[in-house]
Amino acid sequence: MKEQNDQSLAYTNITPTQQIIASSAGALLTSFFVTPLDVVKIRLQAQSKPFTKGKCFVYCNGLMDHLCVCLNGNSKAWYKVPGRFTGTVDAFVQIIRNEGVRSLWSGLPPTLVMAVPATAIYFTCYDQLRDILIHHMNNVETASLIAGATARLGSATLISPLELIRTKMQSRTLSYKELTSCIQSSVAKEGWLSLWKGWGPTVLRDVPFSAMYWYNYELGRKWLCQRYNKTEPTFSICFVSGALSGSFASVVTLPFDVVKTRRQIEVGESEVVHSSQKKSTSTWRIMRIIMSENGFSGLFAGLSPRLIKVAPACAIMISSYEFGKAFFRQLNSDRQLKTL
């Protein structure tokens, strides 16, 4: 109990504003380091199956995923293909040689628009809930599991309408007045719930992912601290724990990620063509369709690319976040000593 109380006190020594700053900095670093991987992946996809005007693809840097609309098929750096790539390394080399290093981060600005606020909300809510639950529970891991699931449910619910609005703005040039009219028209036809299209598959993927991630992260961090006789987790311990827990959660929740991707693309393309045609929206029905088309293995399509992005993204995000919090704790402690 004393150890749990000490951990709780360590977390309460940092303000919500400082948590927001630490999580935002982590989101920026994660997006910066992982974005090139997804730019290359999308370029390789475009090479094998070019995106046509009005089609959608999902951009995901392991931290956040966003639906992107192909406007003209040849001018956007994300899916412009100047030559043939023989593989991932060759794609990196050719993109840098032909278009410059900056092209590897061509998908960064739009993802930061949502990734930074969403991550700040999620991590700050998690820490606040975790601190409260630790005071009422005798198990840090259980508190982390519940706090992680609840925080992800809240952040996913808040961000879902913003994603839909962003898709509408991408599909055609809209002024804010036209966008408001478009949203009002959608709400009038289908109700307020129309702003949360695709929310179900998102929650089914992200909430279990978050619960498993934080539970295993706390277990892994505690085990590594004991293994190497550390009283406080180091940057490397946080990094390894984040990578391993993120990888495990990614594998378990991959079927819901496959469903969510398909659902996102359906919603995005219906927005582009302004179609009111309803497609299969049930998560379980989409799963049955995928299994009938590609077998059970179809639910685990894209496992390697997902792990390649999610593992480093989780590792960078959590280690930079913990580093930021440690910095602010020390800063607060120094300020208290000065006042004394």
Score class of each variant (00 low, 15 high):
M1Q: 15
E3G: 05
L9M: 10
A10M: 12
A10L: 12
P16V: 00
Q18W: 13
I20A: 03
S23I: 01
S23D: 03
S24R: 11
A25W: 13
G26A: 04
T30P: 01
T30N: 01
T30E: 07
S31T: 13
V34Y: 08
V40L: 15
I42A: 02
L44N: 05
A46C: 05
S48P: 00
P50N: 03
T52I: 07
T52H: 07
K55C: 02
F57L: 06
V58F: 12
Y59E: 00
M64P: 05
M64A: 10
H66Q: 12
G73I: 01
K76G: 04
W78L: 14
W78H: 11
G83K: 14
G87T: 08
I96P: 07
R97E: 15
N98F: 15
G100E: 07
V101S: 14
S103K: 11
L104M: 03
W105C: 10
G107Y: 05
T111M: 14
L112N: 13
L112P: 09
V113C: 12
M114S: 06
A115S: 05
V116Q: 00
A120N: 06
I121N: 00
F123Q: 10
C125E: 03
D131V: 12
L133S: 03
N139W: 10
A143T: 00
G148Y: 00
A149Y: 04
T150L: 14
G154D: 01
A156K: 04
A156E: 01
L164W: 02
T167S: 11
M169Q: 07
M169L: 04
S171M: 04
R172W: 10
S175P: 05
E178I: 06
I183M: 03
I183R: 04
I183P: 01
Q184A: 07
S185K: 13
S186E: 13
W199N: 05
G200R: 15
D206V: 00
D206A: 12
S210N: 07
S210A: 11
M212D: 01
Y213A: 02
W214F: 11
Y215M: 10
N216I: 09
N216M: 13
E218H: 11
E218N: 09
R221K: 08
W223A: 09
Q226M: 09
Y228P: 02
N229A: 09
K230M: 15
F235V: 08
F235I: 11
F235C: 07
S236N: 10
C238S: 07
V240T: 01
S241H: 07
A243K: 06
S247T: 09
A249P: 12
S250Y: 06
T253A: 10
P255K: 11
D257F: 02
Q264K: 15
I265D: 00
E266I: 13
V267G: 01
V267Q: 14
G268Q: 06
E269S: 01
E269W: 14
E271I: 15
V272M: 10
K279G: 11
S280R: 13
S282M: 02
W284P: 04
M291H: 10
N294I: 14
G298C: 01
F300T: 06
G302P: 06
L303Q: 11
S304K: 13
S304Q: 12
P305K: 01
I308A: 03
A313W: 01
C314P: 02
A315L: 00
I316A: 02
S320V: 10
E322T: 05
F323K: 09
K325L: 09
F328G: 00
N332W: 03
L337D: 12
K338R: 11
K338G: 12
K338M: 08
